[in-house]
Amino acid sequence: MSNSSERILLSSEREGRISHFRFWVMVGVPLAALLFQVYVPLFFQFLGFLELPLLVVVYFALMRRNQVSGLLIGAIVGLAQDSLSKNPLGMFGIVKTLVGYFASSIGVRLDVDNTAMRLVLTFFFFVFHQFFYWVLARALLAQQLAFEPQKTLLLGLLNALVGVSLFYFLDKLREKA
């Protein structure tokens, strides 16, 4: 009896922390992130380092705290990103699917409203994303891409800093419970 109550309590607590978003937010924010990536660097080349689609996937996966939802968001955004690149469809799709799945898995267990935690997680997922993409490109497409650890770590830090600010803004778009 006590065991059952405890499980119900845990479940309720977890359910209470799940964030909900309106439909237009779930569609519009990833679309805006993709637009940013293909449009803004035309005028501000130094902003080309930003992986906004990845940051958006990480945010929604963390906040939704649902693995299926997270991996589907990752797959859709990744495939859309593939569509706008010259890569075969599936490269960004697979990587972002895994990012979405792992981010939502972590979101279940950790307090992802904490700023420091968000910073660390965004940094980690950026490095994971870049490394896994590099592995896939070499293994599946035989592309000889260069992987520069120092550059990746630095870009990861920059993306994490931007990500924390972006997450703060996206928090405002959450539906009130």
């Binding site: 993709l34 990536q37 293909v38 449009y39 660097p41 035309l42 080309g48 380092f49 992986e51 689609p53 990103q81 593939d82 706008l84 690149s85 010259k86 890569n87 960004f92 870009l155």
Partner: peptide, 8 residues
């Protein structure tokens, strides 16, 4: 617009 990806 440019293609997606940082090294596009």
């Amino acid at each position: 617009m440019a293609g997606a990806g940082s090294n596009s």
